[in-house]
Design a protein around this nucleic acid. Structure first.
Lengths: 343, 343
DNA sequence: TTGAAAGCGATACCAG
DNA sequence: CTGGTATCGCTTTCAA
């Protein structure tokens, strides 16, 4: 046994020990043909003996690829973002690709994310979660020929995976309608700005569509878009529930908001679902704890599918198709028939 | 404006356009001295014009470093692991380092994680969460001179950040003791195997120590180590609560287990905290929802500190010291005085 | 089937 | 101050 050199073995060390040229070592390394079995065996043995591991940096410089997939995700604070990332991790784990995570908490970092990541020498492909790259970023991606898949966000030029939010809004509202409710309010996010998503807005569309189906006219004072926070949702719900003609059901466009609604109801001494029905959206873990009826988004699934799409694009170097994932209504304990008119 | 070439600009393109040598471009790129202001300006202008971005792969090959920090984490499924990773992400965001995430869900991937990641050409440093690298991995790390910090796990040769679990066990148990409880059971994980952590075991030590302080003899039938799952904890709790001499309080070594205990109590018609007090460990998000009294681990903090330690090691190339983070008891609604003997 | 040598895109030494 | 050139570790022609 020769003494272990201070540094790890390089390809030329292997070549020397096996008594061959580096090109040959490279060939067996990459499983290329045109190497005699005998030579191959000798090389393999040398690699073994030296505990040789090719340098991925050098290899990437040659191949002109990085073997890393960048994941840009805003608000890793939110449970749903985490779920999506988990789906991505799961799909990428068996692949050869590494996962580089870039968390975007501010507008500034959003910009940096694409400056840094959207370059061919940094990533072979990009997964963007709950965020829409701006025109400059898309141009950069294009120029670098970096495949990019959007998870939870649509873009005309980029393959994406979204959930069918219109349908989700319909699902929730129709459930309430079928229960007999006619006074149904909606608490939703503020209308989308260019860089964010229109998901929540689509839910409103579904809500209106379901109302239309049942020929229930919609009432402006019941339509409250404008918040993402639990606290604000609570305030809005409190207002709603003190209306002379208060709604018997509230559809909140996120579970977080629904939790605010529940708090408001509790403060006002309203029982759920006897006095008020509540439907959320997302099905975060807490939802099942509080028995919240909600629309489950395939969060994990969306990440998984997004990653698979990207892997496909990377492999087949052809374009891949966008996907809309199905939503599911989880009926639990916060919805029931409306209170009798007299009570 | 000349037409944009198909591929991105290289250093020699910049050199050519600025009418200088590549060495000079490299100098201004790295902010080195020995470049005249005038030349520097010309180069800068050329870089601007060409939208030049140096190739990090090439640069890493030259510098012989990767600028990535590997994060090995088992069970990204668990909320506490996610919290720790969030802390890591937060600490690494402002740094120049990229974050490569490696999720370990199986023994096989655990092995692969270190085979793949513990190499100097892959990562400049490693952060290992809730996992102890085996001897082979440590040797590899050593040989490659890759700094490695353990988060939530101790090792004699590696700097690490842990929470003081013995103290946590004491905190929880002492709280119960002070409330007047004398029949206190413990539900904990199974004793540690070599690759996992002894954290939960330490909690048992703290439990025993607190009992000792109050001169309460411990009873074997109250000491139930052996599970990590909520369901099994529920089964065990059910057994415990049907003992002729049932405990008046249960200390569960994780919130998940505590949730199982709560379910068992509810099934048995026992009121919490009137008939039974329950303390958990971790303070996951749901804990505050169900009002669970628990020991808060500084999860996010542990990740942040771990990452900072690693950054320090990377910068100062000196060894860094391990840290023990403080625990905090969150008293909520699942603990109270024990029921009167007569009732 | 094999090896020598020319890239890949930067850094850094050594002359000038 | 500046530019040529060897170097980092691997892949890939191109001859032999």
């Amino acid at each position: 046994m020769e003494p272990l050199s201070e540094h790890t073995a390089k390809i030329r060390d292997v070549a020397a020990r096996a008594g061959v040229g580096v090109a040959t070592v490279s060939r067996v390394l990459n499983g290329r043909a045109h190497v005699s079995d005998e030579t191959r065996a000798r090389v393999l043995e040398a690699m073994q003996a030296l505990d040789y591991q090719p340098s991925s940096v050098a290899r990437n410089l040659s191949f002109r690829r990085t073997m890393v997939i960048g994941v840009v995700v805003p608000f890793l604070t939110s449970p749903s973002a985490v779920e999506r990332v988990r789906g991505i991790v799961a799909a990428l784990s068996p692949s050869e690709y590494d996962l580089a995570l870039f968390d975007v908490e501010s507008e500034d970092r959003r910009r940096r994310a694409f400056d840094i990541f959207a370059r061919p020498d940094r990533t072979d492909g990009l997964l963007v979660v709950s965020l829409i790259p701006d025109a400059a970023a898309v141009a950069r991606l294009d120029r670098g020929r970096i495949p990019c898949v959007l998870v939870d966000g649509a873009h005309p030029h980029l393959p994406h995976v979204v959930s069918d939010d219109v349908r989700g809004g319909e699902l929730a509202t129709r459930h309430l309608l079928q229960l007999g409710h006619r006074a149904i309010a909606l608490i939703g996010d503020k209308p989308p700005d260019p860089y964010r998503l229109s998901g929540s807005r689509d839910r409103t569309t579904g809500y209106l569509r379901a109302l239309g189906e049942f020929e229930v006219p919609h009432r402006d004072e019941y339509l409250r878009e404008g918040t993402q926070s639990r606290d604000v949702a609570q305030t809005i719900a409190t207002e709603l529930l003190q209306l002379p003609d208060r709604p018997t059901a509230i559809f909140a466009c996120s579970d977080d908001q629904a939790l605010g609604v529940l708090a408001a109801a509790s403060d006002l001494g309203l029982r759920v679902p006897e006095d008020l029905s509540v439907v959320g959206f997302d099905d975060v873990e807490i939802a099942s704890y509080v028995g919240l009826t909600t629309v489950r988004q395939p969060l994990f699934e969306s990440g998984r599918v997004g990653a698979e799409l990207l892997l496909e694009a990377l492999a087949g170097d052809g374009d891949v198709e966008s996907r809309a994932l199905d939503l599911e209504l989880m009926v639990r304990r916060t919805t029931g028939p409306p209170p009798l008119p007299g009570s």
